[in-house]
Design a protein around this nucleic acid. Structure first.
Length: 425
RNA sequence: GUGGCCAUAGCUCAAUCGGCAGAGCAUUGGAAUGUGGAUCCAAAGGUCGCGGGUUCGACCCCCGCUGGCCACCCCA
């Protein structure tokens, strides 16, 4: 065992897996651009207050999972690593007066998030999210735009079995009354509530709706549904979101049990799952409307909506489905030599080719020629450039490792030859 | 945070009842002095996750810790 290893819940992303990650990030980046979202970067840590208000003080994320940083002085601020992206983005919106920009302000961010919970496959203490936020537009059309953008991302990333679960969780005008009804309903059935579920009645009654306890299924079947108790404004908004999705031809499934248990999350809530896997806890991504959040973080009342997609889980899903993802590309050529000591020549030839932008490896070891060619072939290089006696006349042997053919080429002609070949010519 | 399963070479895994730590892949060298992915031979690579206990003797049994995975919790 090594003396040191990556901290629990973190991991190294090794060279072989980076191309897949780069692919996923490239899809996110280019889609964001196409949809008119602009990139923002916020600090990896913020004042704890930003998260306690912005995420919610009584949420698991803040109560149990926040990575708090020790202040360096007695009177120092307390910071925490960001557990999600929205709070920091909204803080930046307020701080930089973005309410004076044309609305909505459409932003995206891609980076690591940190939560101190118990690791599992697809659940890490350091994980990556793509965050997309549209702040300053209350209308249902932007909800549909966001939901569709997420689906398109999964499709372009290479996952073709992703579906969106949709719900409306009301707003401060209608939700409190509904929760009262819901609690009253469960109290009527308190005698048959599984013990483990009873405490949630006080802590977070909405959560009972999507309980995985089989004993809850029968009770929940008759429970009052939030969608039936929306105020008129919320009901209209929900209907219009669906109309916009229908007009786009975006499929979705209404899931009345889908909740986001934070007070300032409002109306639209959605999560992305791989088809047939929504019973498992591993959402690929999720989002919703947060019309109260800007105000909570010190701004004017401003509507907003966004999503966070978990890139680790996308990578995991791509591996599971065996989807085609980019891999590392080998060098177009490897410079090898017959004389084990003549590494200076090999390095010089490679350097000149690299100056032309060609991906060329120089074999700088002291192995004999056969071994050098073996390595070059095994790593998938198309050509071996063999330095030998011909060098004195300015020539080298260029060996095509796929065709097993070989010819003498002037060193000066190498860049043109390799450039043509590396473009598939 | 709760419960369970697991941890042997860089990777994937063996090791019978408690009795000498192994294989394949990968790496390096040789067969083969300037010609490759195959083949053969060899080398190197180990605190059997860490610490303690039981025992004449522990990879093996017991306890604790660390880490991974699974189910909860919750989310991404």
């Amino acid at each position: 065992m090594p003396t040191y290893r990556a901290p629990r819940g973190t991991r190294d992303l090794l060279p072989a897996e980076r191309p897949a990650w780069r692919h996923v990030a490239d899809v996110a980046r280019s889609l964001a651009h196409v949809y008119g979202y602009r990139e923002i970067e916020t600090p990896l840590f913020e004042q704890v207050d930003v998260f306690e208000r912005g995420v919610g003080a009584v949420t698991d994320i803040v109560e149990k999972e926040l990575f708090r940083l020790q202040p360096r002085t007695e009177d120092g601020e307390t910071w925490a690593l960001r557990p999600e992206g929205t709070a920091g983005v909204v803080r930046a919106y307020v701080q930089h007066g973005m309410q004076t920009w044309p609305q909505p302000v459409k932003l995206w961010l891609l980076g690591p998030m940190f939560r101190y919970d118990r690791p599992q496959a697809g659940r890490y203490r350091e994980f990556w999210q793509w965050d997309v936020e549209a702040i300053g537009d209350a209308g249902p059309a932007v909800d549909a735009e966001i939901v569709e953008l997420g689906l398109r991302f999964y499709d372009q990333a290479g996952l073709d079995d992703v579906e969106v679960l949709l719900n409306s969780i009301g707003d401060p005008a209608c939700r409190p009354a509904y929760i009262e009804r819901l609690v009253a309903f469960y109290r009527d059935h308190a005698d048959v509530l599984p013990p483990a579920e009873r405490h949630r009645l006080d802590a977070n009654p909405l959560r009972l709706l999507d309980s995985k306890d089989p004993g809850m299924a029968a009770i929940n079947a008759t429970a009052p549904r939030l969608v039936d108790h929306l105020c008129e404004a919320c009901a209209t908004h929900f209907t219009e979101v669906q109309e916009h999705l229908d007009a786009l031809g975006v499929p979705y499934r209404i899931e009345p049990g889908l909740v986001r248990g934070l007070d300032y999350y409002t109306r639209t809530a959605f999560e992305y799952y791989r088809r047939g896997r929504e019973g498992q806890q591993q959402a690929l991504g999720g989002g919703g409307r947060y019309d109260g959040l800007v105000e909570l973080l010190g701004g004017k009342h401003t509507p907003g909506i966004g999503f966070a997609l978990g890139l680790d889980r996308v990578i995991l899903a791509l591996e599971e489905t065996g989807a085609e993802v980019p891999t590392e590309s080998p060098p177009i050529a490897v410079v090898v030599g017959a004389d084990p000591g003549a590494t200076a020549e090999r390095l010089r030839v490679a350097t000149d080719l690299r100056a032309e932008g060609l991906n060329v490896r120089a074999d700088l070891g002291v192995r004999k020629l056969g071994r050098q060619l073996e390595s070059a072939a095994r790593e998938g290089a198309r050509f071996a450039i063999i330095l030998g006696d011909e060098l004195s006349e300015g020539n080298v042997q260029v060996r095509d490792l796929e065709a097993a053919s070989q010819k003498v080429v002037a060193i000066d002609d190498l860049p043109a030859l390799l450039s043509r070949k590396s473009q598939g010519g």
